[in-house]
Design a protein around this nucleic acid. Structure first.
Length: 486
RNA sequence: GCUGCUAUAGUGUAGUCCGGCCAAUCAUGCGAGCCUCUCACGCUCGCGACUGGGGUUCGAAUCCCCAUAGCAGCACCA
């Protein structure tokens, strides 16, 4: 019976087979270090990870930092932290800015093979020619001339914008995006935070170089790279290299969330968001802070698979995955939002024992001592509630004198409460209740919680009748918790 | 504009390659009920989709054509 239950939650979502993967794969996750990882990155990272686990092989983390404009020096560490959080099976890491000599070397070889040339036309001019399917004057230069120009790029004879290495493709290709695309350009500012360089490879070149050098066999990436895949084929062909197997999945959005790193950064700088882990953001650190488990992210992403349709990722689906993981683990506590202090007439002092987890009695219980006055959720005290049951304690009747409620002990019988259809509500002894702020994506809810909650720092708990929350901070002024989901 | 990709319920997904077993799978969501000292968990039942139009065929979610919609690329970004 337990196995059946287990099997249900663990059922493996099977990803479609990859062709040519029978004898293992080499795959890579290649983020740009411009900020921390978000859900969109997680899709690429987890899909590749899953295939490496399925077929066996190597999983390379490749930091693609060949554009100094898009490098945030802090992002190197953030990316690594996020990957650690996701527990990806990375087997090796390479950083492109450390590999510039390799790319230069291959560029020279490609020029020698006649697969590339150094173009000194200005951009506008080249663009016009490209649109008109006309070769630019540099295209037919002899190899020796190209090699000379290439040296002059490297030795700073040329300045930024004055020379570009282009891959020879097919000028008659109906897609203008394919015609003689650039492979290297000169960049002097901003300086790269990690390396001194003058000439940088463009993504299409460095990616092919590395995929080949590292022995990458399969590439799974977003469909925004479909055109790049076609461009990259030209480079493979020039070198005579074997082309990896590609899969392109569709665009993914998330309801109500910005996934653009630059927009997130802008919002943070403007003060709209508190930081990269602001809970309104779709970064992995924001999810972590809210108590979303990395396995929930993985399962949700695997369930989406590698379809090429554009999708809108739903929080509901992520929450459902997370709840499966968190519900059996999270201890239960009372959190009283918007508390109302009530004196209960006619009740003797007594002690309530509330279970830490209803499905696991072995965990024991919390002890709540009733001494006359309690904090109740204001929202549950309305003119049309005649009776409520304080969970694990007793029943209380409410009577009203105008807008002033008064509360009276009404017996211990749970059956009576059920018969009266009384709500069973959470409560806290007025003495000793700890101030607690629950931060949600919509705003903050102030209230009080059990003292024991202070021992759950960093854990996800369930506030009964409210939802799951991660205890983010415990201080002299109380507890700060982040709402996870219902 | 040019080039290409895609289109199954509110959301995600299976089925599409090799047409019939699909009045369409699973999950999530929503509704009702059961269970329960939480509005959680669990259980039961229900709701809800093949973008539209043509064609091929005995038979189409599946093949073909057109339309429509969405997305991507056309950067000295990745």
């Amino acid at each position: 019976m337990y196995e059946a239950l287990f099997a249900k939650h663990e059922h493996r979502r099977v990803l479609p087979d990859l062709e040519g993967a029978e004898h293992g794969v080499v795959m890579r996750f290649a983020p740009n270090p411009s900020g921390p990882l978000h859900i969109g990155h997680a899709r690429a990272a987890v899909l590749n990870d899953a295939y490496v686990k399925q077929y066996g092989g190597r999983y390379i983390l490749r930091i693609e930092d060949t554009d100094p404009k898009r490098v945030d020096p802090e992002a190197y560490d953030m990316v690594k932290e996020d990957i650690a959080w996701l527990r990806l099976g990375i087997t090796e890491t390479v950083t492109q800015s450390e590999r510039l000599p390799l790319y230069y070397d291959l560029c020279r070889k490609l020029i020698e093979r006649g697969g590339a040339y150094v173009c000194i036309c200005n951009n506008e001019r080249f663009r016009e020619l490209k649109q008109a399917k006309i070769a630019c004057p540099c295209r037919d230069q002899p190899v020796e001339k190209n090699l000379g120009l290439w040296e002059r790029m490297l030795d700073h004879t040329f300045n930024e914008g004055e020379a570009t290495v282009r891959i020879k493709t097919d000028l008659n290709n109906p897609d203008p995006a394919m015609r003689d695309f650039p492979a290297f350009r000169i960049l002097d500012s901003p300086p790269h935070p990690r390396v001194i360089a003058h000439v940088y490879p463009l993504m299409n070149f460095s990616v092919v170089a590395d995929d080949h050098l590292l022995g990458v066999t399969h590439v799974i990436r977003g469909k925004d790279h479909i055109a790049n895949t076609r461009r990259q084929r030209y480079i493979y062909d020039h070198f005579g290299w074997k082309v990896p197997v590609y899969r392109h999945y569709g665009r993914m959005g998330i309801e109500g969330v910005v996934l653009s790193t630059s927009q997130m950064r802008f919002g943070i700088n403007e003060g709209k968001y508190s930081g990269w882990d602001d809970i309104r953001l779709g970064t992995l650190r924001a999810l972590a802070r809210r108590g979303i488990s990395p396995d929930a992210v993985k399962n949700a992403v695997l369930a989406i698979g590698i379809g090429d349709t554009d999708i809108s990722f739903s929080w509901d689906n992520l929450y459902a995955e997370n709840k499966k993981i968190v519900d059996p683990v999270a201890n239960r506590y009372f959190f009283v939002p918007d508390p109302f202090t009530a004196n209960i007439d006619g009740a003797l002092h007594r002690t309530a024992h509330a279970m830490l987890h209803p499905g696991d009695t072995a965990r024991g219980s919390r002890i709540l001592v009733f001494e006359g006055s309690v904090e109740l959720p204001r929202g549950d005290i309305t003119h049309d509630t005649a009776m409520v049951r304080l969970k694990d304690l007793f029943n209380v009747t409410i009577s009203w004198d105008g807008s002033i409620p008064s509360f009276a002990y009404a017996g211990d019988s749970l059956a009576e409460a059920r018969a009266a259809k009384a709500h069973i509500i959470q409560w806290l002894p007025a003495q000793g209740a700890v101030p607690c702020t629950l931060l949600t994506q919509e705003g903050e809810i102030t209230g009080v919680c059990e003292p024991l909650v202070t021992k759950e720092l960093g854990n996800v708990v369930q506030f009964e009748r409210v939802g799951f929350a991660r205890i983010d901070a415990v201080g002299n002024d109380g507890v700060t918790a982040y709402f996870t989901h219902k």
